[in-house]
Computed example of a mutant assay.
Amino acid sequence: MFLMEIRDRSFPLLLRKTGDATPLLHAMRIGQSHRDVAIVLLGAFSRWVNHLNDDDISKPRTKMILKALRTNLKLAIDYGLAKSQSDLTASFLQTLIMSEGDKWVWAQVSSISRALSAGNVGQPVKAADSAVRRFATKELGKAHAIATLEDYIANATGDLLMLGAWSNALETIQGEIIPSYYFARDDRVYKAFVDRLDRHKLTIQTSLTRRLKWQLRILRTVLAGRTTTYRRKVELLAVELDDGDGV
C-alpha cells in the first residue's frame, strides 16, 4: 500500500537512486524474497506510462522521468524479469519511444508511406513488421526478450501502417497529424485515425486516390475491435495489402 501511495503522490521517488541503487534495483539484488516488491514496482511503472496525460508528454520534467523509467525497465529485463512479466519488454520499448523515439517513428512512417504508395509491390505490412523487429532487436539484443514481444510488434506494425496511410492523405488534404507519442500505446493511434477519417470524410472521398481510399478502408476495418488479436489483424492486413490484387 505504501508503494502505491508513493506512485500516486510522488512517482519520481520510485525511480530515484539511494546510494548506487534505485528501489527496483535494490529489490532485484536482494533476490527471491523481494521479487513481489519488484513486480509491484513494475506494475506502478506501467500504470504511470499508460495514464500519462497527453499534455504532459512534451514537458522537460516528463522527459526526464521517462528516461529514468526506461533505465529501470532495462535493468529489470537484464535481471530476467521479462520471463515472468510478459508486458515488461513492451513497456520498455514504449517508454524508449516516448522519451526519445520521435525521429525513429517519423523515419519509419515516411518509409511505410512510400511502401503504401507503391501498392502491394511495396509490401507495406512486411516492411512495417521488419522495421519494428529491427528496432526491438537493436535495443534489446536478446532473442528471448524479442520472443515476448509479438503482441507489441503487431500493435506497432498496425500503427505504422495507419500513420503511413494518414501521412499520405495529408499530402492532399488539410488535416491534423497523429502524434508520435500515441505510437504502440494500445489503440490510441487507431482512435485518432478513425477520428480523422470521420472528420474529413467528404474531403477524403472527393480528393484522395482510389488506392489510398481503399487502404484507409482496409486499415479501419481490419484494425477495429478487441476480439481479434493484433497478430491476427496484421496477418489479415498482409493478405490485403501485401498479397492481394491491390487497387
Rank of each mutant, 00 (worst) to 15 (best):
M1K: 13
L3D: 09
M4V: 14
M4F: 15
E5R: 12
R7D: 05
L14F: 11
L14S: 09
R16V: 06
T18K: 14
G19S: 10
A21E: 08
T22Q: 05
P23G: 06
P23E: 07
L24H: 13
H26S: 13
A27D: 09
M28D: 04
R29L: 15
I30H: 08
G31E: 10
Q32V: 13
D36Y: 08
V37E: 14
V37R: 14
L42Y: 05
F45K: 02
S46M: 09
S46G: 13
R47A: 12
W48A: 04
N50W: 10
L52F: 09
P60R: 03
R61G: 01
R61L: 09
K63N: 08
M64A: 14
I65Y: 07
L66C: 04
K67Y: 11
N72D: 15
L73N: 07
K74F: 15
A76C: 05
A82S: 14
K83Y: 10
K83A: 15
L88K: 03
T89A: 15
A90S: 13
L93Q: 05
Q94M: 13
Q94V: 04
I97F: 06
M98Y: 02
V105R: 05
V105L: 06
V105W: 07
S110Y: 06
S111V: 11
R114Y: 09
S117H: 15
G119I: 08
G122P: 12
G122Y: 11
Q123P: 02
A127F: 02
D129K: 12
A131T: 12
T137G: 14
L140C: 01
H144T: 00
A145Y: 08
T148F: 06
L149P: 03
L149M: 11
E150K: 09
E150I: 01
I153M: 05
T157I: 10
D159G: 06
L160G: 00
L163K: 05
A165T: 04
S167C: 02
N168V: 02
Q174K: 14
E176T: 08
P179C: 00
Y181G: 00
F183W: 10
R185C: 02
D187K: 14
R188W: 08
Y190I: 00
D198P: 00
R199C: 04
L202Y: 10
I204M: 06
L208C: 05
R210A: 12
W214T: 04
R217T: 14
R217Y: 15
L223G: 03
A224H: 12
A224P: 01
A224E: 11
G225R: 07
T228N: 00
T228R: 04
T228W: 00
R232V: 12
R232E: 14
K233Q: 09
E235A: 02
E235F: 01
E235P: 00
L237R: 01
A238E: 14
A238C: 07
E240P: 02
E240H: 13
D242V: 07
D243T: 02
G244T: 11
D245G: 13
G246N: 10
